[in-house]
């Protein structure tokens, strides 16, 4: 899976560079998030701007990260979700579970 991790304004920002999150790569995403969390990252933002498609296993991987961070009293947010991808969060009502922001820069700044 193509991922970019960077530190912006004290947040660990994980940008998913793949267009698809499905059962082929969601396991890798889940493990990556768990390793970030076990490594001490408590403020994680997942930037989904490039993601055109997510399946139930992809939602599950994000849910796993969300649960682990909240269990450690941290912050976990999702940003820049494309319209059709967002509809999956709505259908599964996971939009009520996740902290979702329309635009990364608007909510968290541009790092300068």
């Amino acid at each position: 899976m193509n991922l970019k991790q960077e530190k912006i304004n004290d947040y660990s920002v994980l940008t998913i560079l793949d267009e698809r999150i499905d059962a082929h790569n969601s396991g890798e995403l889940k493990v990556y998030l768990l390793q970030m969390i076990e490594g001490g990252e408590k403020r994680i933002i997942v930037h989904l701007g490039h993601v055109r498609f997510i399946d139930s296993s992809g939602l599950g991987a994000l849910l796993s990260g969300n649960k682990q961070v909240l269990a450690r009293s941290g912050e976990f947010a999702l940003t820049n979700i494309q319209k059709q991808v967002l509809s999956m969060f709505e259908l599964t009502r996971l939009n009520r579970v996740f902290d979702i922001h329309d635009d990364f820069t608007e909510s968290f700044g541009n790092g300068t």
């Binding site: 399946d55 139930s56 599950g60 999956m88 259908l91 599964t92 009502r93």
Partner: peptide
């Protein structure tokens, strides 16, 4: 059916197919 009030990490696949 998945419990949408207590979402699990799996078990959503057939629910999604049936919903759509």
């Amino acid at each position: 059916l998945p419990d949408l009030d207590h979402p699990g990490e799996s078990g959503m696949g057939l629910f999604l197919i049936r919903s759509l």
